[in-house]
Design a protein around this nucleic acid. Sequence first.
DNA 1: AGTGTTTGTTTCGCTATCCAACATATTATG
DNA 2: CATAATATGTTGGATAGCGAAACAAACACT
Lengths: 408, 408
Amino acid sequence: MMPSPTRNTVAISEPDPSRRNNLALLTSLVHHNGVLSRAQLTKRTGLNRSTVGALIGQLVNLEVVYEAAPSGEAQVGRPSPIVHPRPSIAALAVNPEIDAVTIGLVGLGGKVQKKIRFDTERIPTAKEAVNIAAAVIEGMRSELDASYQVMGVGIAVPGLVNRDDGVVRHAPHLGWRDEPVARMLGEATGYPCHAANDASLGAEGELLFGAGAGQKNLIFLNGGASGIGGGIVADGELLRGTSGYAGELGHTFVRSSGKPCHCGATGCLETEVSQSSLFELAGIGGGDAGDLEQALRRNSSETVDAEVARQLEFLGIALRNAVNIFNPEAIVLDGFLGVLHALSPGKLDSLLRSQAMDGPADQVKTYRAALGSDLMMIGAAELAFAQFLSDPAGALAALPMGKVDYVR
Amino acid sequence: MMPSPTRNTVAISEPDPSRRNNLALLTSLVHHNGVLSRAQLTKRTGLNRSTVGALIGQLVNLEVVYEAAPSGEAQVGRPSPIVHPRPSIAALAVNPEIDAVTIGLVGLGGKVQKKIRFDTERIPTAKEAVNIAAAVIEGMRSELDASYQVMGVGIAVPGLVNRDDGVVRHAPHLGWRDEPVARMLGEATGYPCHAANDASLGAEGELLFGAGAGQKNLIFLNGGASGIGGGIVADGELLRGTSGYAGELGHTFVRSSGKPCHCGATGCLETEVSQSSLFELAGIGGGDAGDLEQALRRNSSETVDAEVARQLEFLGIALRNAVNIFNPEAIVLDGFLGVLHALSPGKLDSLLRSQAMDGPADQVKTYRAALGSDLMMIGAAELAFAQFLSDPAGALAALPMGKVDYVR
DNA sequence: AGTGTTTGTTTCGCTATCCAACATATTATG
DNA sequence: CATAATATGTTGGATAGCGAAACAAACACT
């Protein structure tokens, strides 16, 4: 037998890292900005016209994007074709909560194509949540196989999640501990699965597609039935920390001799500021942030105002800390924290101006989250898109024989 | 007149960004790790043997590094030459404080070559500090010109500094407001000058050369006469924020109805934890952290222990917040905070284990700063090295005719 | 209709990398 | 002490990817 003179490793030819980077750059730009002309892309990337042409050509071949006729906008010079992301490149999103598991399908470009909320009678266990998600995904299977290229599944969990291995370290409100949800759902569905903290993903979602679009430094706070979650984007990158647990702003110290928190400390923001008392004052048993806001505006009273003011006071303390530490451009509030902000507009901003330091607080603005109930889907999908966005060609080539129309 | 057919822009030929990146990568590795063999460099960079060979060759030509005989360590195979940073590539460091201005010269590799402390009778104004620094630098001029390639000057200021334009927004303890120190010193010396917050630079220094070496997520806190400064490194990058004001951990809220702070808020860490009461209890009027520690150990008493415990308690609150938010691997304490930590070893760690959340606090360890009085010099120099490290060849070519031994 | 402007397209050359073969310096082995 | 094994520096050639320039196309303006 003749030994092959030179061993042909893995792929036919790995692309240069430079090419990979540029493809990734273009793909991310199109994904996050939605619609850009080729001329705009050359300006944004700083690459040469001809290079962008070649790169876009490759992305068109890979069916990542398509070019459409120039927009009608009157401009001197030859019109530049518009580059659109193909929503058939998609990611699945899963968000377990205490009363439901929501499954979504999000296309490249960040549009939610499909969202299925599965209400549960009881708080789902990790196993139940995975089973529900797997079943719903199985139901969509034929459609997915026929019309989409699914890049993976992202799971947004309200709790501490180790992003590297997808293990839920502790989700107090779900009662989960050390659950390897990413592996579990991966085995159940066959898709690559990743998990992360819900608020961190929310921060990324609002940064890319919502109230924080175009910014670089953002603090996101979500208030829900299961407490207050936080996510922080610094210099365009989500803060992850050593194990991916970063961002727990809900457990900022805001009160001496405050109540004990389930986290083991006392005086946490989450124990002083919660939506249950607001629901009581509003006179409704439950509902979403919109319901709460309406009810509170209807039942306006001194008691309500006082409670809103009290909660904003504590929120202000946590936020001034965060502003001093991060010097952000934007603070984005979701859930009942967004309601608090909306009920007393300007209050938080004036608290920050008076209490935070001059420099760090200069430029900060407070926003209400813009993506509503789509946020978790978009954020979780971003997690699943991550690998694809960092190497589009490679990720598609590694796809389990989706549509391979070339001879090997 | 004949118009030149093709306009020759700037440099003779700009190198490919890829080459620039690789040169920068190698230079940073050698600078931060000090001594590495060529074989180690190929492994660390992932580049090809021959490529690293060519790159090192260029760096040797540029006199950025030199190769020395292989270390005596017995290894199978051909020995690999050791690559050393040339300390003649240097940066100047300036650190104004309330009672002195310190000027230093730091070589590539992070070794402090020279340090001159200029004591002042009064708190220096910005103008005075700049004059002092300029005069001292002028004194070293001939030596600098003869034996060094100075890449610039870094100024470490205890206060809010806009890193982009080098303007000190507010340095409360120095009494400075809106002082463009970088521009001022730049005009006085002719060197490119940059300024940043002292604690941020301290964080970078300890990360690269001190107690946090090799880590990716680190919180640095320095306690001095002018309060408590903080710097945060997340994912290997110093947190800067929108304007470079990030890191103000000294103004973390730690106490309800606490004393008012000069920053405008109440209950800040800096008002509850300060070194003045410790100096009183120690029975000495002043001195550095070492003096304080010795005196406190000599004068040990219940009163001292109680005060140390009280201060650690508040420090613990600020740190648990920070740990919950950042999920760091290391906390590095300098100045009197390092003394507090050393006097009651394990106290902070146990506070963190009990009060911070399980996940984020898992891996965190508390250290005392390792670089002592060199820290500010090293950190500030790093600021001045930054541009050189990101484009060694370009920075040297742009140097004002240092040693140009080729014909143009 | 002509002119100027902007942008896509094509061709070509250059740069930086990787690969493979060879050379070299050391330890291990008999 | 000689030979083998191993790791690494060195050299020459091949390739990929980008930028520059010249050309072509499509628009607005007059």
